Amino acid sequence: MNEFKGKIAGVVLLFFLLVLVSSLVFFQPTNKTTGEDKVIEITGNQLLTQLNYLSFAKLDGASVSAEVTLPVIKDRLEKHPYISKADVEYLSKTKIKASVTEKNIFAIILTDEETFFITEDFEVLPILPNVEMMEFPLISNLRESKKIKALKILRSSEMLEAFRIIEAARFTEMSLYKNLVEINLRNGGDIILTFSGMKAPIIFGHGHESRKMLSLEVIFKEIADAKKDYSTADYIDLRFSNEIYIGKSFDTKYQSTGLSE
Rank of each mutant, 00 (worst) to 15 (best):
T111S: 13
E144C: 03
E89M: 13
I246P: 00
S210K: 15
Y230W: 09
A66H: 07
Y90T: 12
V68H: 07
K228Q: 14
V21Y: 09
L17N: 06
V64L: 04
S156K: 12
L14I: 11
K103M: 09
F15S: 05
K97C: 09
M134K: 14
F163C: 05
Y245M: 09
N184P: 05
A169I: 04
H80E: 01
Y90C: 12
T33G: 15
T111C: 12
T252S: 13
P29A: 01
I183R: 03
Q255L: 08
K253G: 02
L20C: 12
L17E: 02
S241L: 11
L24Q: 11
F220T: 13
P137Q: 01
D75N: 12
T101S: 15
I148Y: 10
I202P: 11
V218Y: 13
E161H: 14
A66D: 04
G6R: 09
I73F: 02
K253R: 10
Y82I: 12
V11P: 11
E67T: 13
E123F: 08
M213W: 02
Q46S: 10
I223F: 04
K103A: 02
G44L: 00
N187R: 07
Y245R: 12
R164Y: 12
S260K: 15
V218S: 15
I105L: 08
I192D: 00
G207M: 03
E3A: 07
F106I: 05
Y177N: 11
R186S: 07
K199I: 03
G61I: 08
A150L: 04
I40V: 15
D60I: 01
T69W: 11
L20K: 10
E113F: 13
S99I: 15
A66R: 05
K97P: 02
S249C: 10
K228N: 15
G197M: 00
I139S: 06
Y90S: 12
P29D: 04
K199L: 05
S156N: 10
D37H: 13
K199Q: 02
K147D: 03
A62Y: 11
V218G: 11
T69I: 06
V100Y: 04
F56S: 01
L91C: 01
K199T: 10
D251Q: 06
A169R: 05
S63Q: 11
V68A: 04
M1C: 08
D190I: 03
E3C: 04
G207W: 04
L17A: 09
T43Q: 02
S241E: 15
K212D: 01
F16Y: 06
G205I: 03
T194I: 08
S231C: 05
V19E: 07
A224F: 02
L17C: 10
A66T: 02
N2H: 12
I83R: 00
L214T: 14
K38E: 11
R164Q: 15
V72K: 13
V72L: 10
L54F: 00
I96H: 07
V100L: 06
I8T: 03
I73K: 01
